[in-house]
Nucleic acid binder design. Structure first.
Lengths: 328, 328
DNA sequence: GTGAAAGCGCTAACAA
DNA sequence: TTGTTAGCGCTTTCAC
C-alpha cells in the first residue's frame, strides 16, 4: 500500500494524504476524515525510507555494544531506549561480541543505514577507530572509555573508584590488600582500576607487592583462579582482596570458602559493579555501584544535543557510590 | 556524498559505481580500481534507504522486548544477533518496558521502517495483538508465549518444566511442597508453571493445599514476601518450596535463612531459569535451565525461513534441563 | 484547500 | 563494458 493508492481510494492526491498524515498544511475537514478512515481500514503506514530519503533524517540512532547479554549492557541500553523513545528515535543494535572487526563493520553499516547518531560502548579505542570515526562524519558518543578527543565520552572515574574502594579497605585495617585486575589493553577497567589501587597503597605508605596482583578475565572462574594464585604464591597471606569486578569478587570468595576460610572474618573481599549480583549474593558484596542505566541516559542526551548541534561537554563523568555490605 | 558525486569524481556514470559497489555486471579492471580508490578516499557509503526503497527489502528485522535489561532478554537478543549478523541483517530494537501500548506502537513503527520481519518476545497475547498482526502483513515470530495460531512461536514447555521440577522434589521426599507463582495473565509463566505444579501433585496423589500457593512478581523481594506468607499462614510447614523463577527462589531462600532455617537441610528450594544467578548463589540453586540464547537463535532461524517463504513449524519447543544443585 | 511535478539516492532494464 | 533512463514512495514548492 502506497500513498498513491490511498490517494486513489480517497479520490484525492498524494499531496493531500501527506498533509493529513503529517498534519501539515490545510485539508478540508471532510477530506481529512475520509482519508483517516481509509488509512485506518487499510492499515496503511507511510514508508519511512521514502520519507527519510527526502528529509535526510532517519530518526534512528545506532548503538554498538561489545556484548548485549551482560547486565551492564542491558542497563545501558535501557537508559538509551528511554531517552530515544521520548525523542521519537528508533535504535539500531550492533552486537560485536568483542570483535574489533565487527565494531568497524557496524560503524560503516550504520552510516549506510543513515543513522542520525551513534553511541559506541567501547572496550578499546585505537588509532583505527579515530580514522574511521573521523571519516564517518556522524555525531558519535563513546561510552566506557576515554575518547582522547575523538568524540564526547561518558565514563566512570575508574581510577578514583578503585582508589576509593582500596582506601576504604585499607582504612578498615586490610593493609595487606591484594588485587585482581584485568588486562590493561582495556584502558579504563584494566589500567584505571589498577592505577587507583596502586595510588591508594602509595597514599597510605604501603609497599606494592607484585605477588599481590593477578589478572582475571571478567568471569567468576577467572576470579577464582586469580585468587588461588595469590593465595598459593604468598606465604604472607593478604587480609583483603579487591577484585576489579563483582564477578571476579565472587570467584575469589568462592575460592576462599572452598579452602575453608570465612568471608569477611578471615579475609575481606570487595568488587566493582553493584549490580544484581552484589545485592543478593551471600555474603552481600561490598562494592562500588556503577549506574549503567544513568550512563546510557546521559550518553543518549549527549548524542541528541550533538545532533541538535548544541554545545556539549567532551567528557562526562558518572559518579560512583561505595556500597558497604557484608563481604568487606 | 552520493553515487552521482562519486561518478563525477571517477569520470564515469552512477551505474558503473553501482556495479562496482555491488559487484554486479562488468566493469573494466582499471575503472573498478579507480572507483574503489575514490570510495576509499572519500569514505563514501551508499545510502541504504535509497537502495531499500528500490529493492523493497530493508535487510533489517525488528525485535520487540518487554525489558531489555533482563538476563533472559539479553541472551535471547544475543542469539538473534548471531543469526541475523550471519545473514547480513540489522536489528531494530523495541523496548516496551512491559507496556502493551508501546508494543503496538513498535509493531506499527517497524512496519513504517519497512522491516523484513519481526520477533516479538511476548508476555501477553491478546485479541488486539491478533488484529494488528494480521493487518501488518509482515513475517512475525512470537517468543515466549503460545501464539494461538497468530504466528509461529518459540516456547518452552512451561507446564512440563514445572511438572518435572515438582515431581523431582516430591520424589526426593518433599511431599509437602509449596509453590510461588506469578499472575496468570502471563499464560506461559503464570498459567503453565502453576499447572505443572498441580499436575505433579495430582500424579503423586497429594492433596492440593491453597495455602501452599502464593504469587510473586518476578522480583527477589516478591519471592521473599510470598515465602513469608506461606510460612506464616501454615502451621503445617512445607518441606519444600518451588518458585517459578530463580529470583523468587532466592527471595524465598533469603527469607528462610533470615528466620534461622537451613536450605536445603530444613527446607528445599528450587527455581526456574538456570542463569548466572543459580550457578553462583550460595547455595547453588536447583533449577531448570532455560536456554534463552537458543530460543533467540531458533526464533531468528524461523523468521528467516518465513521471510524466504519456506514452510515452518508453527510451534517450536525448546527443551529444558533439570539442574540438580545444592538448594534442593 | 488542493493538485502537479520535481527530486531525494539508488538500481536495473535497455541501449549503445 | 558502459551510460541513459525510469522509477521506488514520499515531501514540498508552486500554481491554480
Amino acid at each position: 500500500m502506497t500513498i498513491k493508492e490511498v490517494a486513489k481510494l480517497a479520490g484525492t492526491s498524494p499531496a493531500t494524504i501527506s498533509r493529513v498524515i503529517n498534519n501539515s498544511g490545510y485539508v478540508k475537514k471532510e477530506v481529512r476524515e475520509k482519508v483517516e478512515k481509509i488509512i485506518e481500514e487499510t492499515g496503511y503506514r507511510p514508508n519511512a525510507f521514502a520519507k527519510a530519503l527526502h528529509q535526510k533524517k532517519s530518526s534512528t540512532i545506532g548503538v554498538i555494544l561489545p556484548k548485549i547479554n551482560a547486565s551492564s549492557s542491558g542497563d545501558t541500553v535501557s537508559g538509551i531506549t528511554e531517552i530515544a523513545s521520548k525523542k521519537g528515535y528508533s535504535i539500531l543494535l550492533g552486537n560485536t561480541s568483542h570483535s574489533q572487526e565487527k565494531e568497524i563493520e557496524f560503524l560503516n553499516l550504520f552510516k549506510e543505514k543513515q543513522v542520525d547518531g551513534i553511541i559506541l560502548v567501547a572496550t578499546i579505542i585505537t588509532e583505527r577507530h579515530k580514522t574511521i570515526i573521523d571519516k564517518l562524519n556522524i555525531p558519535l558518543v563513546i561510552v566506557g572509555q576515554d575518547s582522547k578527543g575523538i568524540a564526547p565520552c561518558v565514563v566512570f572515574d575508574e581510577e578514583k573508584a578503585a582508589y576509593d574502594m582500596a582506601a576504604y579497605m585499607i582504612e578498615s585495617g586490610k593493609e595487606k590488600l591484594a588485587f585482581i585486575g584485568v588486562d590493561e589493553s582495556d584502558i579504563a577497567v584494566g589500567g584505571g582500576r589498577k592505577a587507583g589501587y596502586k595510588k591508594a597503597l602509595k597514599k597510605n605508605n604501603i609497599l606494592l607487592k607484585k605477588e599481590y596482583i593477578e589478572n582475571g578475565a571478567f568471569t567468576v572462574e577467572s576470579g577464582y583462579e586469580a585468587c588461588k594464585k595469590i593465595w598459593e604464591n604468598n606465604n604472607n597471606k593478604p587480609q583483603g582482596i579487591f577484585a576489579s569486578t563483582d564477578k571476579m569478587a565472587i570467584g575469589a570468595i568462592n575460592y576462599l570458602l572452598d579452602i575453608g576460610l570465612d568471608v569477611p572474618k578471615d579475609v575481606a573481599v570487595s568488587g566493582i559493579g553493584g549490580g544484581f549480583l552484589s545485592k543478593y549474593y551471600k555474603p552481600k558484596i561490598t562494592t562500588l555501584f556503577y549506574d549503567y542505566k544513568k550512563s546510557g541516559i546521559k550518553s543518549a542526551k549527549l548524542l541528541f544535543d550533538l545532533i541538535d548541534k548544541k554545545e556539549v561537554e567532551q567528557r562526562v563523568v558518572i559518579e560512583h557510590k561505595l556500597i558497604k555490605q557484608e563481604s568487606a
